[in-house]
């Protein structure tokens, strides 16, 4: 069975700076896989290449066994790939439910319709509301995003991605900027995601990583440093040096 997502010797440089160095990586279908590494290791850049926002300098990306390296973001989303952003990237002056509905409407092919009012597409509106409900955001559905506390905005970030009903979900530091006291809400949401969804999560919060992930890849200076089960990673001294060492300077 092909991996949900796979890269083969993926490279990316910005000028002289090598940000991805021969990354070969497999995200099995239904996996809960974490990607960790110190700041500037190239994690976000890796995600940007997976979604097609950046094109790699060399190497290949396969989505469900199909080579998508040459495809744009749109085509990859259509094939079931969705992401969240490390820094909130939302429609700030629009209601929460609209944020989700925009995504649902794109997925359903409704978004280009020009004549009937948007609100008359009940399927889109209802689905968006239901989704917000499962994330505990029902109360805030009509609020404008910019007015929400940051922690809730992080949840909206996830909700928008889920509005695409992805088969593969890439989460770039979903708990970044969320106070520790609230990060459990994020974890609850992640735990409740459908089991057949393949998830790659980037996260600095080690508690969250070790509770959520079944597999961990460590990235350092653009290259895969190590991959293994949480237990293996936790036991490896070098990881602590590379990762934790740099984290706590």
């Amino acid at each position: 069975m092909p991996a949900a997502l796979e890269t083969r010797r993926l490279c990316k440089s910005f000028g002289a700076l090598m940000v991805a160095d021969q990354i070969s990586f497999r995200l099995e279908s239904g996996a809960r896989h974490a990607l960790i590494g110190p700041n500037g290791a190239g994690k976000t850049t890796f995600v940007n290449m997976l979604t097609g926002r950046f094109s790699p300098t060399s190497g290949a990306i396969l989505l469900g066994g199909e080579d998508v390296t040459a495809l744009g973001q749109l085509a990859r989303v259509k094939r079931g790939l969705a992401r969240t952003f490390q820094i909130n990237t939302l429609f700030r002056n629009v209601s929460v439910v609209d944020n989700v509905a925009f995504a649902v409407a794109e997925r359903e092919g409704v978004a280009r319709r020009m004549f009937r009012p948007a609100g008359s597409y009940h399927a889109v509106v209802d689905e968006s509301m239901a989704l917000l409900d499962t994330l505990g955001l029902a109360q805030d559905a009509r609020a404008v995003v910019a007015g929400l506390p940051y922690g809730k905005q992080r949840l909206v970030e996830i909700a928008v991605a889920l509005g695409l009903r992805p088969r593969v979900l890439l989460l770039d530091e979903p708990a970044a900027g969320v106070p520790t006291s609230e990060s459990h809400r994020i974890l609850d949401v992640l735990d409740a995601l459908p089991k057949d969804m393949s998830i790659l999560i980037i996260e600095h919060d080690m508690d969250l990583v070790f509770r959520f992930a079944q597999r961990i890849t460590v990235l350092a200076q653009g290259a895969v440093f190590l991959e293994g089960t949480p237990a293996e990673i936790a036991a490896d001294k070098r990881v602590r040096e590379v990762y934790l060492g740099e984290r706590h300077v």
Binding site: T51, R53, Q73, L74, V77, K78, A82, R83, F85, T89, L90, F91, R92, N93, V94, D98, A101, F102, A103, A105, E106, R107, V110, A111, R112, R113, M114, F115, R116, P117, A118, G119, Y121, V124, V160, G163, L164
Partner: peptide, 28 residues
Amino acid sequence: RRLVYSPFGASLTGVRENNVRMHAIGAP
């Protein structure tokens, strides 16, 4: 008015509000 209230109008708002996100949700 029709256009502005339609899904198309909503997606224009999306493009203006956040182009990066619009790409990420697969909008052309």
